[in-house]
Simulated assay, not measured.
Amino acid sequence: MVMLDKTEREIVKLLQKDGRMSFVDMAEQIGVTEGTIRRKFYRLLEEGIIKIAAVTDPFEVGFNAPAIIGLNVDQSRIRDIVEQLTRLPRVHYVAMTTGIYDIIVYAFFADNRELASFLLEELSKIEGITNTQTSLVLDIYKQDFAFGLPQRQDEGRRRRRRSLPAH
């Protein structure tokens, strides 16, 4: 777990509003030096607490068949299955869940043929998947990653995730 100090929490909040905000602007708004912002920013980045990325509308860039796929799996193989899913290039989100599905996957495909190929040729090769349910995304009305930070002091900690391979 990592405890974020007040300045680090403010950096995260500002970047969630404007991921291109300069260190100078953040320093002015928070009331610290630009050097402090720079040092803390790179610590947050290096420790995997934040990632900086461009978020696109999948439909606008040619992914006309984004899908949400619910998976039921053999519980004894769940970690291995998660690791295999994270290595698939079309998969952009993998979460272990409670409820109807053991794992939820968000993946983006150019068209239904690419989606079908993924389901029949890639997903079906992963041993331990017992059931899948695929929902095609028809439109996206909100895609916001500025979810803020917990308000309670002790919620500034975050559980360290196991290191999974990058795809």
Score class of each variant (00 low, 15 high):
M1K: 02
L4I: 06
T7H: 08
T7Y: 08
E8H: 02
R9M: 00
E10C: 00
I11A: 04
I11K: 03
D18E: 11
D18S: 10
G19W: 14
R20E: 15
S22E: 14
V24Y: 10
D25S: 12
M26A: 13
M26T: 10
A27F: 06
Q29M: 13
V32S: 03
T33S: 15
G35N: 13
T36N: 08
R38K: 15
R39D: 09
R39I: 09
K40L: 01
K40N: 04
R43D: 02
L44Y: 05
L45P: 01
E46T: 11
E46F: 10
E46R: 15
G48K: 13
I49P: 01
I49E: 02
A53K: 13
A54E: 15
A54T: 15
V55T: 13
T56F: 15
D57S: 14
P58I: 03
F59S: 01
F59P: 04
E60N: 13
V61P: 07
V61Q: 00
N64W: 00
N64Y: 06
N64P: 06
I68F: 10
I68P: 00
I69F: 01
I69S: 03
G70Y: 09
V73M: 10
D74H: 11
S76R: 15
R77P: 04
R77T: 02
I78A: 12
I78R: 14
R79S: 09
R79C: 01
D80L: 02
D80K: 08
D80A: 11
I81L: 07
V82M: 14
V82Q: 14
E83Q: 08
Q84E: 15
T86P: 01
R87M: 11
T97F: 11
G99M: 11
I100L: 14
D102Y: 09
I103N: 09
V105K: 07
Y106F: 15
A107F: 10
A110T: 14
D111G: 14
D111Q: 13
N112T: 10
E114Y: 10
A116P: 05
S117E: 02
L120R: 13
E122R: 08
L123K: 06
L123T: 00
S124E: 12
K125E: 09
K125L: 02
I126P: 06
I129V: 15
I129L: 12
T130K: 12
N131I: 05
Q133P: 02
Q133V: 12
T134V: 14
L138F: 09
L138E: 07
L138S: 08
L138Y: 07
Y141S: 12
K142W: 02
K142G: 04
F145P: 06
F145H: 11
A146R: 12
F147M: 07
G148N: 07
G148S: 08
L149V: 05
Q153D: 08
Q153V: 09
E155A: 03
G156M: 00
R157E: 09
R158E: 07
R159M: 03
R160E: 06
R161W: 02
P165C: 05
A166R: 11
H167D: 09
